[in-house]
Design a protein around this nucleic acid. Structure first.
Lengths: 145, 145
DNA sequence: GGATTTTATTTGCAAACTGCAAGTATGCGG
DNA sequence: CCGCATACTTGCAGTTTGCAAATAAAATCC
């Protein structure tokens, strides 16, 4: 019971390494945070700056600069919203989508490898457990203590 | 199946927030990385610099400076090894132990809260699953691709 | 409608973090 | 002793960070 923290620590550390390992695609390579930003822009439908910054729990000013960097790399496009000209809508460029997809693929390959050490039942149980854990973390509202 | 990455992403993100929330103890507060360093020094028995740096996957030079910072804060003590005077043995000071314990307590409280949304069976299953997942990640050797 | 306040984003710092290359000091194998 | 490997530190230069302050565009109040 007491080692839950430790197991979680190990899993997050390993998953962090995994993510870090998957930040290079051919010529372009991004930082870990930038990889997460690409991922979230891809997931959320035409999000604003705030939305992504909030999702990732990062300071908006830091985020603003990260986006500038990603725009310089031509991976992200920023368009002023028609509805509210204060907000900027983010989306991935074609190259950004390509990079995000390639990263996704690498990570999926890793995950497949990891789960290959389990039988179907275990795999199913683990995935179900992760979802349950995540749901309970969400209920507890850990992020905004 | 395809959303495993996403669930893991969310869990690690939330656990990261949780860790970050637990970096202040009374007067002293440490950074997230420093919290992890304290944790690992506490766990491993009189480790060397290398050992902890390796465990956390961080550059030894960066680590060296983090340790300097923690020594300045009087949370860590560094003693040259008797066996090999190139090596420095790390340990927590009394205050360091206190801080580590306080952080541990806060995190445990959060975890208790999180698991309070599950019944005994679910809790057991989840913990078992995390251990299995961690073991499979270890087998895959994700960290040193 | 104009003044005031709120909201979304950007810039100016100054501090912290990062990693590579080079340095110091110790150990080891001949 | 000499040369090489190892453990750690330091110099530097680039990146990241977050707070405070600026801008600019809603939204609200009168």
């Amino acid at each position: 019971m007491e080692d839950v923290r430790h197991v979680l620590q190990l899993i997050t550390r390993r998953f962090g390494f995994l993510n870090k390992n998957c930040c290079s695609v051919g010529g372009t390579s991004v930082s870990l945070i930038q990889s997460h930003i690409l991922y979230e822009i891809d997931r959320q439908h035409h999000p604003s700056m705030q939305q992504i910054a909030e999702t990732l729990g990062m300071d908006i000013t830091t985020f603003s600069r990260q986006i500038q960097s990603l725009i310089r790399k031509k991976l992200v496009k920023k368009t002023p919203s028609d509805l509210d000209r204060r907000v900027y809508i983010l989306e991935l460029t074609t190259e950004g989508k390509f990079v995000a997809a390639a990263i996704e693929q690498q990570i999926q390959d890793y995950l497949t490898q990891i789960f290959s050490h389990m039988n179907e039942f275990e795999k199913d149980t683990v995935i179900r457990s992760l979802k349950l854990l995540n749901a309970c973390m969400e209920k507890t509202g850990v992020c905004c203590g």
